[in-house]
Computed example of a mutant assay.
Amino acid sequence: MGNDIDRAGVAKAYGRWAPVYDFVFGKVFDPGRQSTIAIADTIGGRILDVGVGTGLSLADYASTTKLYGVDISEPMLRKAQQRVRSLNLTNVETLAVMDAKHLAFADSFFDAVVAQFVITAVPDPEATLDDFVRVLKPGGELILVNHIGAERGPRRLFELAFAPLARRLGWRPEFPWQRLVDWAAKNGGVTLFEHRPMPPMGHFSLIRYRKS
């Protein structure tokens, strides 16, 4: 299926994943998730969490942070809504089924946009990132946690072997860093100010941009 990931396919894959998502993704991705939440809470105000999934992260944000969560998968969001109700998370303003590339929010609405493990799973990463920037206030932050493909070495070999399974999950395992560099230059409205590897084994990166 190459690099083209169709939207319905992604929604369906994550629909199948919904029951086991928390178990599988909770532990492996926890360090990246917690780092992101800590940064978002420091910024405060209105935070958009794109690809909020089953709402695993929602309870970890400070109760003073106003949260807006969107996801392509309705079964996932149903679980997130149950979580919000059962934990009485009054700071969650909105949970909505939405395409990350066409966010139904006004320009310059959010203080930060958080997208964890999202940009490698959407059909058009560059246009999606552009829309994230659109809804950010000037000076607002775009916080990505993502798998960035290794250029060489043992991790590169592992990723190539893992690629067919990764694609079935709706990821592009070979997503290169240069693609983000090129996007930021073309967008022209953001400045990169942090890029650090995250556990496990630096497979994921925390990447932060500030809107000019």
Results as ranks from 00 to 15, higher is better:
residue 212 S to I: 09
residue 162 F to E: 10
residue 41 D to K: 09
residue 166 A to L: 05
residue 28 V to P: 06
residue 9 G to R: 03
residue 25 F to K: 04
residue 33 R to I: 04
residue 117 F to L: 14
residue 162 F to Y: 15
residue 27 K to C: 05
residue 114 V to Q: 02
residue 124 D to Q: 11
residue 100 A to T: 01
residue 6 D to L: 12
residue 178 Q to R: 12
residue 82 Q to Y: 09
residue 56 L to N: 03
residue 166 A to F: 03
residue 105 F to G: 07
residue 148 I to N: 00
residue 199 P to Y: 03
residue 122 V to L: 04
residue 15 G to W: 01
residue 4 D to G: 09
residue 68 Y to A: 08
residue 165 L to Q: 06
residue 170 G to L: 10
residue 94 T to N: 13
residue 143 I to V: 14
residue 34 Q to V: 10
residue 50 V to F: 01
residue 32 G to D: 04
residue 140 G to T: 03
residue 45 G to E: 06
residue 142 L to A: 07
residue 123 P to T: 04
residue 66 K to Y: 05
residue 150 A to P: 05
residue 5 I to F: 11
residue 7 R to P: 01
residue 1 M to H: 13
residue 115 A to S: 12
residue 86 S to E: 15
residue 17 W to I: 03
residue 208 R to I: 08
residue 127 A to V: 10
residue 191 T to Q: 12
residue 91 N to Y: 09
residue 39 I to C: 00
residue 69 G to L: 08
residue 133 V to M: 03
residue 138 P to F: 04
residue 65 T to K: 10
residue 161 A to V: 14
residue 182 D to S: 14
residue 117 F to R: 08
residue 51 G to I: 01
residue 170 G to F: 09
residue 144 L to H: 05
residue 192 L to F: 06
residue 93 E to F: 08
residue 153 G to K: 07
residue 57 S to G: 11
residue 148 I to V: 15
residue 12 K to A: 15
residue 65 T to M: 12
residue 103 L to D: 05
residue 105 F to E: 09
residue 175 F to E: 03
residue 208 R to H: 01
residue 94 T to K: 14
residue 66 K to F: 02
residue 205 S to K: 07
residue 88 N to Q: 15
residue 67 L to N: 05
residue 100 A to E: 01
residue 211 K to F: 03
residue 152 R to Y: 09
residue 163 A to M: 07
residue 182 D to K: 13
residue 50 V to N: 00
residue 115 A to E: 03
residue 169 L to W: 15
residue 120 T to A: 11
residue 40 A to C: 15
residue 210 R to S: 07
residue 27 K to N: 10
residue 146 N to H: 07
residue 9 G to T: 11
residue 106 A to N: 13
residue 16 R to I: 12
residue 130 D to G: 06
residue 99 D to V: 07
residue 71 D to R: 02
residue 5 I to A: 09
residue 52 V to F: 06
residue 139 G to D: 04
residue 172 R to G: 07
residue 9 G to K: 09
residue 193 F to R: 08
residue 199 P to E: 09
residue 107 D to T: 13
residue 13 A to K: 13
residue 68 Y to R: 06
residue 209 Y to G: 04
residue 150 A to H: 07
residue 19 P to L: 13
residue 19 P to K: 11
residue 55 G to M: 02
residue 174 E to P: 00
residue 159 E to L: 14
residue 151 E to G: 06
residue 142 L to C: 14
residue 8 A to S: 12
residue 120 T to P: 00
residue 174 E to R: 11
residue 132 F to G: 01
residue 29 F to P: 01
residue 34 Q to S: 11
residue 125 P to I: 10
residue 78 R to E: 15
residue 53 G to C: 06
residue 32 G to P: 05
residue 98 M to Q: 14
residue 114 V to G: 03
residue 77 L to N: 02
residue 192 L to V: 07
residue 124 D to W: 01
residue 169 L to N: 09
residue 161 A to T: 11
residue 179 R to W: 02
residue 14 Y to R: 08
residue 108 S to D: 15
residue 145 V to A: 10
residue 139 G to F: 04
residue 186 K to L: 13
residue 112 A to V: 04
residue 36 T to H: 01
residue 101 K to C: 14
residue 113 V to Y: 02
residue 47 I to H: 00
residue 74 E to M: 15
residue 191 T to A: 11
residue 76 M to P: 06
residue 142 L to N: 01
residue 22 D to R: 05
residue 160 L to P: 00
residue 140 G to L: 02
residue 63 S to E: 14
residue 68 Y to C: 09
residue 157 L to I: 10
residue 152 R to I: 05
residue 186 K to T: 15
residue 70 V to Q: 06
